[in-house]
Amino acid sequence: MRAANETPAVSRRTALNWLLGTSLGATLVAALYPVFRFVIPPRVAEAPVNRVLAGKLSQLPDNSGKIFRFGSKPAILIRTPTGEVRAFSAVCTHLNCTVQYRPDFQHIWCACHNGQYDLQGKNISGPPPKPLEAYKVDIAGDDVYVTRGA
């Protein structure tokens, strides 16, 4: 180290290094930012689906269930052993598997990690941390309509 009086506060070398470093950094950011953005796909405008024809009542015997398509996600229509019709999101709240109705258990079951939900969609055993999202069911003649967010 030279004595302080021999060196200016910022030497030419330091200034140049700083310039070079920031330019390199900026170049790197300029190159990486588009890459970072590119890897996430754009949101595709999807007409929000709020109501679908989920199935026919005549094809849904007591103590059974069926998966139907609700927008881009699977949903489940169940008919309880006492004949009530209910609908829930079929996406397991644990890790996203698609649940199913188990006639032998008389409730909803997820095969992936043995998660169990009761007939209200409430998580009753296994790893699922939350209940299944419930939907509203309207029956018009033989048609079962399911509505979201009502």
Partner: peptide, 10 residues
């Protein structure tokens, strides 16, 4: 089939 239940034995 993205619109089928996960089968047992996953």
């Amino acid at each position: 089939d993205p619109f089928a239940s996960a089968p047992a034995g996953i």
